[in-house]
Simulated scan of single mutants.
Amino acid sequence: MRENLDIRGAVTIELTDGAGALVARQHRSNQIVLTGRRLVAQLFGGVTGAPPGKVTHVAVGTDGTATSDGDAALRSERGPRNPITTVAYTDFDDRPTPGGPSVRRTRVSLTAVFDFDQVNGPEPLREAALFTADKAGVMYNRVILDAVTKTNAFKLTVLWDIVF
């Protein structure tokens, strides 16, 4: 059997109002960029000098330009980045090819919340990413969203699933 490490991710964003009612929800697959794949390789194999950090923060921005493999930052980040507050691991059976053998995978689920008073502005949010720090750091992935206008009337919850 030949193994293929098929790392993939998807994000769900939810806007809720002050009463806790879900106002908007969208789900998008993301692109793991070169800096993210290198991060995984360095966490696995190690590096000379200081080891890389784990993914700790979610950032959002306003640029809807398609993701490119060479992206290393959001194109128009609206800060501050928020820390990941919940991390959960789940093992599951995946069938990469129809009728093919099942492969046991691990899903890591990450959650970050932008409260009512955070990342507000008239220009809609159109991009999101995971980072290894609250400033600078390594960008793991990037996703383009349908326009989301974030005001102080809404809380934004970002739920990210990465499958290994």
Score class of each variant (00 low, 15 high):
Ile162Thr: 04
Arg105Ala: 06
Met139Thr: 11
Gln31Phe: 12
Gly53Ser: 14
Asp146Ala: 14
Gly137Leu: 11
Ala66Ile: 13
Thr132Ile: 15
Val113Gly: 08
Pro101Ile: 04
Leu34Arg: 05
Glu123Met: 14
Arg25Lys: 11
Thr12Ala: 04
Thr62Ile: 12
Ala66Val: 11
Ile13Gln: 03
Gly49Lys: 04
Glu3Pro: 00
Gly137Ile: 07
Arg75Pro: 01
Gly137Arg: 09
His57Gln: 03
Arg38Phe: 13
Ile162Pro: 00
Ala153Gly: 03
Val23Asp: 00
Arg37Thr: 15
Glu3Asp: 05
His27Pro: 01
Gly45Tyr: 09
Thr62Phe: 06
Val113His: 02
Val163His: 01
Thr97Tyr: 07
Gly64Leu: 09
Phe154His: 14
Glu14Cys: 06
Pro51Tyr: 12
Pro122Ala: 15
Thr67Trp: 00
Leu15Phe: 04
Gln42Leu: 15
Glu77Ile: 06
Lys54Gly: 14
Arg104Tyr: 02
Gln42Cys: 13
Pro52Leu: 11
Glu127Asp: 10
Gly61Ser: 10
Leu34Ile: 15
Thr56Tyr: 05
Gly79Ile: 15
Arg81Trp: 07
Ile13Met: 13
Arg78His: 04
Arg107Ser: 13
Ala21Leu: 11
Thr35Tyr: 06
Arg126Glu: 11
Lys150Asn: 09
Val40Asp: 02
Thr111Asp: 09
Gly99Asn: 05
Asp117Gly: 05
Val60Thr: 08
Phe116Met: 04
Thr157Leu: 06
